[in-house]
Write a protein that binds this DNA or RNA. Structure first.
Lengths: 330, 330
DNA sequence: CTGAAAGCGCTAACAG
DNA sequence: CTGTTAGCGCTTTCAG
């Protein structure tokens, strides 16, 4: 079932059929209708490989995330896929499992079958990403590298809000449980929380790096307690939930003894008891924006597409895991 | 940077280079090393489109799920991707958003760029799936259609365990909150729970269909209460969590007044308070098995590959959302 | 507006 | 074991 069959059925040459099927304006309406009808009739489906071979474009986009099982990603993935489909592109999702080597390998593999790649919270070093980015269009999410387009979530603002929230409740000693090495988000939080704490004249201990998972949070428990902090900001909701679990095991009450704040605003935080106070991240908009930036770069005729940067705001969602510090303690 | 450049650099003909790069046994070791070295040196990456065009095979597999944001899927996806990579295949994941039309469209689109497709919990009708399955290799997960390979989770067994668990606690009146129309899992549960209940001599009211989400659970609350049942088995963890939320709003205690059981054993159930009693589904093994079945079908020379069927067992995880019924009530 | 012809990069017979 | 040749299905010049 090739374009040849369609052309024959419609009584035209292959090239005419091709034109009718793609650059429809270059062919007489009447002929085009005939071709389209024949194609429909025969159930013709273009061979994407052949098409990609001649055009050099696949109309596929790659989306690389570190861990599909982290509830931060699914909303972003869903939004990206849905929006890409509307724009006539297909999105291929791959999971690096938080492994830098897998990440690089995956980019290489994917790069051969897509027109462009979206890298969400990559862990690779700037220079490796920049090098790979030279080979095909990239859009980064939550990572900033000169020369590459990016969608950023203003987590710095969120972190400052979190510090202020805790300071406002009366906490004078905070801890920041950082994420994995190589995380831009973590670095942003660290910087912004540090500044906000010193502005507020309170102490902030910085802990980490930690795995961005429940396990990571549980593992950080002892260190958190050692600091003596009464308010803790965690790298993400999973870490926060894990920490609360760890504290619970040691009979430390949240928020009674220690207040805990997460980042992302995922189901995990909503379902947790106490319900988690968290910094909400605009994941779905970020997914759409990333697709938009990427397609823009792809469809602009420029050889070196302008790098665009888009920053989305975050906000603080106050729930039940934060409260004034216990008067008797500290 | 084509295979031509590599051949030239290695001082051999294109076809020799091609052989060295693929069917390595057909070429003298020495020549092969020279070709491989040249390829490495030049950073040669085969053009997958060209390769796919000649061979007719892409080494890509499609994995279609109804909702990436449902925590049931990520472990399955992760396991499938990781295992496929080991076997030299790439997995493309797509999300249908629980929409039957999108599901069909996605299968069609994906079908053109992959060698085979895994359909997890499809909602399409048997005949539509069977028709599409005629066009390329399919493996179903949690769906049984004659002539197609499938990986099944023995949720019937799990449902029976759940009924027995509740009966053993002393509940004499149960409700089953079903899932969406077209769900094989839901049908299995209904049948098995019905049988187990009648065997145990207790009443079982069947409710639904419902959306397989927290919202679906919340929406089912009133109907559940209307039955007067003291034990409820839900289509999945999300529905169970939603139901518990709905009951909580109406000041109905779980498990004090009503016991609730979910299905899947996802984070959602673990994080929920009370922690959810649930039927654990073997999601990761199912992902691997599905990939295995699919690759097997792909690599067997048979024109019509034998349909294989693999059933994985489920188990009941008892946590805090089930207890004996309130003595004073019912 | 349409037909003819070339070629995308690669693999796969077919000879030698 | 290696070189030659053809061609996968499609788009895209180039003529007409």
């Amino acid at each position: 079932m090739t374009i040849r069959d369609v052309a024959q059925a419609a009584g035209v040459h292959v090239s005419t059929a091709s034109r009718a099927l793609t650059a429809s304006s270059l062919v007489k309406k009447e002929t085009r209708d005939r071709v389209l009808a024949a194609a429909e009739e025969l159930g013709y489906r273009p061979n994407e490989s052949a098409r990609a071979l001649t055009t050099g474009r696949t109309r596929n986009l790659g989306l690389i995330v570190s861990d599909i099982a982290n509830p931060f990603f699914p909303p972003l993935i869903k939004a990206a896929q849905a929006y890409a489909r509307v724009r006539g592109y297909q999105v291929f999702v791959a999971d690096t499992d938080e492994d830098v080597r897998v990440e690089e390998e995956l980019i290489q593999t994917l790069a051969r079958q897509v027109d462009g790649v979206i890298l969400v919270s990559p862990r690779l070093s700037d220079d490796v990403i920049a090098r790979l980015g030279g080979e095909l269009p990239f859009v980064l999410v939550n990572r900033q590298i000169t020369g590459l387009s990016a969608v950023l979530m203003d987590v710095a603002h969120g972190a400052a809000l979190a510090v202020d929230h805790l300071a406002g409740l009366g906490h004078g000693h905070l801890a920041l449980v950082c994420g994995p090495r190589g995380s831009w988000t973590s670095a942003q939080m660290r910087r912004a929380a540090g500044k906000a704490a010193s502005d507020a004249g309170i102490r902030l201990d910085v802990l980490g790096p930690n795995a961005p998972t429940e396990q990571g949070g549980i593992a950080a428990t002892a260190e958190v307690l050692r600091t003596g902090a009464t308010g803790v900001i965690c790298y993400n909701d999973l870490v926060a939930v894990g920490l609360i679990e760890g504290l619970d095991e040691r009979r430390v009450r949240v928020p009674g003894d220690i207040s805990v704040i997460g980042v992302d605003d995922t189901v995990a935080g909503r379902l947790n008891r106490p319900r988690l106070t968290t910094i909400a991240m605009p994941t779905a908009p970020a997914g759409r924006t990333a697709i938009d930036l990427l397609i823009q770069a792809l469809e602009s005729a420029e050889p070196a597409p302008a790098t665009a940067q888009s920053t989305l705001t975050t906000s603080l969602v106050v729930r039940d895991s934060t409260a004034p510090p216990d008067q008797s303690a500290d």
